[in-house]
Amino acid sequence: MTDLVGPYQLAQLIGRGGMGEVWLALDTRNDREVAIKLLARQALTDPELQERFRRECKLAGQIRHPHILPVWDFSVEGRPYIVMPFIEDGTDLATILNKGPIEPERAVNIVRQVASALDAAHRKGLRHRDVKPSNIMVEPDGDEEQVLLFDWGIAQPIDTSGASPVTRLDQLVGTPAYIAPERLGDKVTPDHRADVYSLAVVLFECLAGCKPFDGEDMAVLTAQVLRDPPPLPDHLPVALRDVVAKGLAKNPDDRWQSAAEMGAAARNALASPSTSPLPAPLLNLSPSHRPPSPGPASNGPRIAATGLAGMSLALLLLVLNVVDATTFWILLPLLALGGSLVALGVWGPRRPAHVRPDDPTINPGGFPPIGP
Rank of each mutant, 00 (worst) to 15 (best):
T167R: 15
L169A: 15
T189L: 10
R183G: 03
Q171S: 11
A177I: 00
G215Y: 02
D170W: 01
R193I: 08
D191I: 08
A219P: 00
A200M: 05
P176L: 05
L169S: 15
Q171P: 00
D186Y: 02
D195N: 10
V188C: 14
R183Y: 01
A219F: 00
D214V: 02
L169C: 03
G209R: 06
A177G: 10
V188W: 07
Y178W: 04
R168Q: 11
D170A: 13
G209A: 04
D195G: 12
C210R: 14
V202L: 04
A208Y: 00
P190L: 07
P190G: 14
G215V: 05
A200R: 03
A219Y: 02
T189C: 07
T175H: 02
M218N: 14
F204H: 13
L184R: 10
L199Q: 05
Y197I: 07
A208N: 10
A219E: 11
D195P: 06
F213H: 13
S164F: 00
S198C: 11
D186R: 13
R168N: 08
E216L: 08
P165A: 03
V188N: 11
E182F: 01
T167H: 06
E205K: 03
V196T: 15
D214G: 09
A200K: 04
P212R: 09
L207F: 02
T167D: 04
A180Y: 04
P176T: 13
F213W: 05
D214C: 01
P165W: 04
E216C: 01
L172H: 09
D214H: 02
V166F: 00
A177M: 01
L203A: 14
A200C: 08
G215M: 02
D191V: 12
K187P: 01
L199N: 04
V201I: 11
P181L: 05
M218D: 08
D217A: 13
G185K: 04
L172G: 15
L203V: 04
C206K: 06
D186E: 10
R183E: 10
G215P: 02
V202D: 04
K211I: 00
Y197L: 07
K211T: 13
